[in-house]
Amino acid sequence: MWTWFHKLASPPHFYALADKLIPWLSVPGYLLIAYGVYAGLFIAPEDYQQGDAFRIIYVHVPSAYLSMLAYMIMAIAGGIGLIWRMKLAHAVAASCAPLGASFTFLALATGSIWGRPMWGTWWEWGDPRLTSELILLFLYFGYMALRGAIDDTAKADKASAVLALVGAVNVPIIHFSVEWWSSLHQGPTLIKEGGPAIDPGMLYPLLAMIFGFSLVFGGMLLRRVRTEVLRRESRTRWVKDMMLQSQEG
């Protein structure tokens, strides 16, 4: 039953699998994003309060969602790496951090750009989500700094996994504390009892963007993990064989 798990953990097998998977994630992802961008910018109706400014949610919401998903993946992969000593999981965690940090930055930047016409300011300390997102960015920075400071890869993997797990326990607490600290944001409209309180013309492009971003993120992650695996396994036989083969072919 666990053979697929062990097979997945073997770097050459994963390398070949990722090679096949990447186009299946990236192509539909980019198609969905293309539809979402077009429909979101041109077809979706104007918001009756926010006018055209709301359209930035088509980038903001998927980025914010992925910034948190990437941290979860990073922590879970780190945990798997610690518990089952699976090297591939550590490679996933290592590849996840810069991607997650980038999406966090994108979410902060788009939130700030949206805030300028809406709140009349680039930055609003009273907004709990913006503040938690900023703390999340700092968590990513800490994780990457710890990785960068340890020269030995195996040690860096384990130490950063512990940090990611401690961070993952803290993320809900940070969120709660910041929420308690202040609340001045419009409530969540997508997930609400009795269906979403959002016009379908606005919703479908948003869903397309969320799925599109997620698929593209998956593709990028696999590509990064593949490079990471190559870097880590650069002295092994299978990498040499593969390189020789690709030179001949």
Partner: peptide, 12 residues
């Protein structure tokens, strides 16, 4: 860098 983000709830 590691501890400050984790310590923010305590500070808040």
């Amino acid at each position: 860098l590691l501890i400050l983000p984790l310590a923010m709830p305590v500070l808040i």
